[in-house]
Design a protein around this nucleic acid. Structure first.
Length: 141
DNA sequence: GCCAACGTTGGC
DNA sequence: GCCAACGTTGGC
């Protein structure tokens, strides 16, 4: 199983919006960037991800699960763009801010730290454990 | 609100 | 195919 990070502007689509969708989940549409799309195409059902609020908040706030693999993005007729469906699994006990990630030497190579503009990114297993721990969850849970 | 980083577009 | 111009993202 692989781990990912999904970035969203909370004004547009927030963790609360995601939670409100329940287990039906929601398609992660609107991605118009090849790298982000390629990451989604590499996802398998059951993969997990972090849900990150960009802009004002700048923090990882929850855990999501991929419930449908890449399929055409219904918000465009352009066949290049695909999206996956995700559902909210659980919130972090406390948000893990970008500032905390930058301050943690073991997260120095995290894509979130290195490339702030990529909206769908891979997360390494050690990074996953550490962020969970910083967020007050069982790192292996 | 500013601007750096990055991606895309289009002229040549 | 190169690169300048432009647009967008997102941290600060």
């Amino acid at each position: 199983m692989r781990r990912w990070l999904f970035k969203s502007e909370p004004d547009v689509w927030s963790w609360d919006d995601q939670v409100a969708r329940g287990d039906r989940g929601e398609q992660w549409d609107g991605v118009r960037n090849y790298q982000a799309r390629n990451n989604m195409q590499a996802m398998a059902k059951g993969d997990l991800g972090f849900f990150y609020h960009s802009n004002k908040e700048r923090a990882i706030v929850g855990i999501v699960e991929v419930i449908a693999e890449a399929h055409p993005d219904s918000t465009t007729d352009d066949p290049r763009w695909h999206c996956v469906d995700i559902r909210a699994v659980e919130p972090l006990s406390r948000p893990v801010t970008l500032e905390m990630c930058k301050a943690e030497p073991r997260l120095a190579d995290m894509v979130l730290v290195r490339n702030s503009r990529l909206s769908v990114q891979p997360v390494a297993p050690e990074e996953w454990r550490l962020v969970r721990e910083l967020g007050g969850l069982d790192p292996d849970g």
